[in-house]
Amino acid sequence: MSSRELSSAELHLWNIVENNPDKIAKMSIVKLSQFAHVSTATIVRTMQKMGYSGYTSYRESLKLKSNSSSSFSVLNDADDKIRSVITKNEIEMNTTLHNLSYSTLEDSISMTKQAKLVYIFARGLSESIANEMMVKLQLTGKYCEFHSDPNIIKTIAKKIKPDSLVIFITLNGETEELVAAAKILNKNDIPILTFSTNSNGSISHYSTLSFIGYQSKTNYFPEYEVRSRLPLQIMTRIFSDAYSVRTNFYKSK
């Protein structure tokens, strides 16, 4: 969203936080409320309109920016609307990286190494991400299959053995056939690794390990379910590359 679409109170707040990043990064929401003379509700509403999940998300982005030596020259030339598009992707990337759990990464690698077979299930726009992961795992010598057909997914889920691993790549964790498959797998004690952006998604309840990325609430195609898969791409690529390193495939080359 452009700052031109903010209310007068929200614009007042946004100007303050943009002009005082070092101070704001150290302030609680209550302190900022007192400093800017606005309500905490105004703070949350403003941050959400500007593409953040809330004030905490905005503060984290400030900290990440302060620790980064890189700058994007394209932002200097872009107008407010294009700048918000670029910033949205930067926030999704930085926050997803910030939220990554090292222990989850290492445990997921170990779980994948132990599995005799790896199955990847995904639907819709997540299929291209799943296909990339399948190819990378196959290149390391791991037997891996990718399926996107809902009937095949549900049928195969009933036949998978405990020495296998199933990887789900799902943005919201609520795709019906994926949740149904996860429920079956969980009942049969099959290890499940999930990549999603929704920690409360139904599929997460059945997962052994989960990577949860950050997704902006801003959707530039509101009439269609084509939200950004950038967080999924980041997490799956880190996992695949880390797996290559841990299995010495990368070193051997």
Rank of each mutant, 00 (worst) to 15 (best):
N188L: 08
N76H: 10
Y224C: 11
S39P: 13
L97S: 08
L193F: 04
N67D: 14
G51R: 05
T56R: 12
M27T: 09
Y143H: 07
E106D: 08
T197V: 09
I16P: 03
Y119K: 07
H12G: 08
W14S: 10
I238C: 06
I91Y: 06
I234T: 12
T175P: 10
T104N: 08
Y220G: 02
V74W: 09
S8L: 13
Y143V: 09
Y119M: 08
S228M: 06
F35T: 12
M93Q: 10
F195D: 03
K251M: 03
K81Y: 02
S110T: 11
Y224V: 14
S70N: 15
S39G: 13
V17I: 15
N200E: 13
S244G: 09
A181D: 05
S84C: 01
Y243T: 02
I234Y: 04
E132N: 10
F221R: 08
H12V: 02
L139C: 03
W14D: 09
A182E: 08
I24T: 14
Q138L: 04
Y119Q: 06
I203F: 05
V245C: 04
V74Y: 11
T112H: 12
G141R: 00
P191V: 03
F195W: 05
G173S: 05
S71L: 14
L97D: 09
V38E: 07
T175A: 13
I153A: 04
S101Y: 07
A122T: 12
A180Y: 08
T140H: 00
F195T: 02
K158S: 11
V245T: 06
L165S: 00
S210N: 13
K26R: 14
N188R: 15
I43A: 06
M235S: 01
T155E: 10
E223L: 12
D22I: 07
I212C: 07
R45G: 03
I16Y: 12
A41W: 03
I192M: 05
I203H: 04
Q114N: 15
Q138V: 00
K142R: 12
E10K: 08
